[in-house]
């Protein structure tokens, strides 16, 4: 019984093959699982553990270190409002308060219909467009309360599908091939590791 569906299994195997050590694929595989299900299910963590040769607890322990990996279900759209310094200077705290009111949930919660999860983000490196908002890690450059409300309505109505895939889909561009240099190289590198370790 496999957690990843057929397409995802092929992609998972490609990911593992890209690294000298399989464990390096752990985080990319977590992103892949989130692309399939929106969050990291226990079954996903078990299969990832098997793919990279660690225990499921190690996968969970690693995943929980990272803000973008969710071991609990989240909404279809994860809305992140940055309140760090540059955004703070331009009304971010007020926008975040508005977002909580509009969505009817506190930071960290998900709306009952499962559509939106609200997060208070640290700097998202788009500080010349404050306050900065991302939906599913896509910059929306929505800086006013009115624009925020419009965005929420449009998303709820199924808009923006082109630019904002549902939560979990991070990279829609597929690597067009595996490693090209020398297929025997990984084997040699691993042998060298074992020799030196």
């Amino acid at each position: 019984m496999s957690y990843f569906n057929a397409t995802m299994t092929a992609r998972a195997r490609q990911l593992v093959s890209l690294y000298p050590e399989p464990r390096s694929a752990l985080v990319p595989l977590c992103h892949l699982a989130q692309e399939q299900d929106g969050w990291l299910t226990p079954e996903a963590m078990e299969e990832i553990a098997e793919l990279v040769g660690v225990t499921p607890a190690e996968v969970r322990g690693t995943a929980t270190f990272y803000d973008m990996l969710h071991t609990e279900p989240v909404g279809r759209y994860v809305v992140a409002v940055c309140t760090n310094i540059a955004c703070l200077l331009d009304g971010a705290i007020e926008l975040l308060a508005h977002a909580q009111e509009r969505l009817g949930i506190p930071v960290g919660a998900t709306t009952p219909d499962g559509l939106f999860t609200l997060e208070e983000a640290e700097c998202l490196a788009d500080c010349d467009h404050p306050p900065c908002v991302q939906v599913n890690h896509r910059f929306v450059r929505t800086t006013t309360a009115e624009a925020f409300d419009r965005l929420v309505e449009e998303l709820a109505a199924g808009g923006h599908a082109e630019n904002i895939p549902t939560h979990g889909t991070l990279v829609r561009v597929r690597r067009s091939g595996g490693l090209r240099v020398d297929p025997g190289q990984i084997a040699r590198e691993r042998a060298a590791q074992e020799g030196s370790g």
């Binding site: 690294y19 270190f65 803000d67 990279v171």
Partner: peptide, 25 residues
């Protein structure tokens, strides 16, 4: 190989970045 991070400021420190690239915290 293009490797995606997953949200943690500390991974900008080069030694943390290497740990992260090895699939660890």
């Amino acid at each position: 190989v293009v490797h995606p991070g997953a949200g943690a400021y500390i991974c900008g420190d080069e030694t943390a970045l290497l740990e992260s690239l090895e699939g660890k915290r």
